[in-house]
Design a protein around this nucleic acid. Structure first.
Length: 577
DNA sequence: GCCGTTTTCGGCCCGACTGTTTTCAGTCG
């Protein structure tokens, strides 16, 4: 059982308990267990095998026993018992906005509704009319909510949400009386997917700002519009997404920005510190009774509690409250000196070698590496060795013509299903930098996937394992892989592991990148661009690296061309010995 | 159910908005 599967089961138990009206704090305990397991970089089975489950934060004796039961037997008595009492299809009702556990329980007990489909029918047949707590507006809301669910595919990739968020932020900034507007929420934290867009602004007239917001073109539906808060649904490609706006006084902006950036768990951690000092913290400020201790800036809020200002990417209650673990020189976009993984028209890219190189140079890079697909990727027009030889000459020719940037020729060579690389060493040794990655046979088991990735890492000419897990966000699960073993071998051999900056991938993910760095592996952040505009995905890779707590020195392409060249040569020398 | 420099019991973050309420419960973030 994977971490994600175990986490899902504990989250499900939390919901089932909630519907049964269980004590909210006990419910929260199960949620915490789910989150701890989900966020864990190492395999939960390994932790269990070492008998260290109860050492994890928020997991005590009872939860450790339940986890252990689940991992060894694949079943959990508590869950099965709960499911006997509560129909499992009831869980899907909670996805309807403004329908929570209380109302779900009422719908089930009073009207016999146990699923989304039954809710829809019950509404259409007027069966909810007269039900206590269910007025006409509530019923209408549910009707819209079901339509919303049918038209949305859940969370949105950050790369899809970002441009819309910037557009809305700038539109708010242009409103009269609005002195400031900023992104908040998971978007500001650089999370890989976004549930809704959060905007924070300060304005002289709150209700006017909310009115302007809810009147934007593109707003499909207004969910709430108060004096300081507005919520709307907007169209985003083929999806719909909720956008929340909060308006606060300028003097409270720091407190509010801290508050609305989250994460929820980070805020709980910060608040607990306030409570210990006898203070209260809300979106308007940090208070001792009526007295304001801090409110204007985030820095003020954190400093008052003896905490450093946290880059938003670190605010996940993962490691940031261990002050010795808070990095001082976190990697940032302006540290990035090159992009070492991209494609051209030679394989499946849309732009020529010269166009990609010019675009990299225009972004201020000192080094760029062209890495087209290898021969077995027929669908991607992969290069057979003879075409690759011509391609090498073509890249060298561009390198001669375009000055002011180091231009390398490499390849993205397939790691085949049985573990062989798609080019022989006689071909690989002619390249400046070799990217190896898995594109086929992803349904193989953990051992096989790990073994073939290790084989690639041990090849003296392979310098980077690209998108190591092969996941596609919202589309394909990561292939089963022992990331810990991979990272150790990468560290030992001098091979880097990628954070692929494409917002379809973001692979390695933040937690794994942190684990890999801790085990000594170098990380390389690349866009895997298939066109010049995709080079602009780099910020999302950097945000992922920041969430992992990576420093400038942990990132290969934050070094200059000479250092990267030395990284390549060192592995070849080491292997020749 | 977890936790502990207020430690083995008694807390556990805080406020806005909505709807159906005559004073608050439910939901959300």
């Amino acid at each position: 059982m994977t971490n994600a599967q175990a986490a899902r089961i504990f989250e499900e138990i939390a919901v089932l308990l909630e519907i049964q009206g269980e004590d909210a704090f006990r419910v929260n305990t199960y949620r915490k267990v789910a989150r701890t397991v989900e966020d864990l970089a190492s395999d939960i089975n390994d932790v269990a095998a070492r008998g260290e489950l109860a050492k994890l934060p928020g997991i005590g004796k009872a939860s450790a026993e339940k986890l252990s039961e689940l991992l060894t037997t694949g079943r959990l008595a508590l869950r099965e018992e709960l499911r006997q009492h509560v129909p499992d299809t009831l869980l899907e009702l909670l996805r309807v906005p403004s329908l929570g556990p209380r109302k779900a329980a009422l719908l089930w007990r009073e009207v016999g509704v146990t699923s989304l489909a039954e809710l829809k029918t019950a509404i259409d047949n007027g069966k909810l009319v007269g039900l206590k707590g269910f007025g006409a507006k509530t019923i209408e809301h549910f009707k819209h909510g079901i339509e919303f669910l049918e038209s949305t595919a859940g969370r949105v990739r950050i790369g899809k949400a970002w441009p819309m968020a910037i557009y809305l932020r700038d539109a708010m900034r242009a409103q009269p009386g609005v002195s400031r507007c900023e992104l908040a929420g998971s978007l500001r934290r650089g999370a890989e997917t976004i549930g809704d867009l959060d905007l924070l602004c300060s304005a002289v007239d709150g209700p006017a700002a909310v009115r302007a917001f809810t009147a934007f073109p593109g707003v499909l539906q207004v969910l709430a519009a108060g004096d300081t808060k507005g919520s709307v649904l907007i169209e985003l490609g083929n999806q719909r997404v909720q956008v929340d706006l909060r308006v606060v006084p300028a003097d409270s902006f720091g407190a509010a920005w801290q508050y609305f950036t989250g994460s929820k768990q980070h805020n709980v951690g910060v608040r607990e510190r306030a409570v210990k000092r006898g203070w209260t913290l809300n979106e308007y400020g940090l208070y001792e009774g009526e007295r304001v201790i801090a409110s204007k800036t985030e820095e003020d809020i954190y400093a008052a509690m003896g905490l450093p200002w946290y880059p938003p990417e670190l605010r996940e209650d993962r490691f940031e409250f261990d002050l010795s673990a808070v990095p001082h020189d976190l990697i940032s976009l302006d540290h990035i000196r090159g992009d070492l993984h991209m494609h051209t028209t030679a394989s499946d890219g849309r732009n020529s070698i010269a166009e990609m190189v010019a675009a990299a140079k225009a972004r201020g890079y000192e080094i760029v590496c062209i890495t087209d697909h290898s021969q077995s990727s027929a669908i991607a027009n992969g290069l057979k060795p003879d075409r690759l030889m011509q391609h090498i000459r073509d890249v060298r020719e561009v390198a001669r013509r375009i000055t002011g940037i180091t231009v390398w020729v490499g390849a993205e060579v397939d790691i085949l299903a049985e573990g062989r690389l798609d080019y022989g060493d006689d071909v690989l040794e002619q390249l400046d930098f070799v990217v190896a990655s898995v594109h086929v046979g992803m349904s193989q088991d953990r051992e096989l996937n790990t073994r073939r990735t290790l084989a690639a890492i041990r090849n003296p000419f392979v310098n980077l394992i690209a998108h190591p897990s092969g996941r596609l966000i919202n589309r394909r699960e990561a292939m089963p892989l022992d990331v810990e073993t991979i990272a150790k071998e990468a560290a030992r051999t001098g091979t880097s592991l990628e954070i692929n900056a494409s917002t379809y991938r973001l692979d390695l993910k933040d937690q794994h990148a942190r684990l890999a760095r801790d085990l000594g592996a170098k990380i390389c952040i690349d866009t895997d661009a298939h066109s010049t505009d995709q080079l602009d995905q780099m910020p999302f890779g950097v945000m992922t690296a920041r969430r992992a707590g990576l420093l400038r020195g942990d990132v290969l392409n934050a070094q200059g061309p000479e250092a990267i060249r030395e990284f390549v040569l060192a592995k070849r020398r080491h292997s020749a010995r």
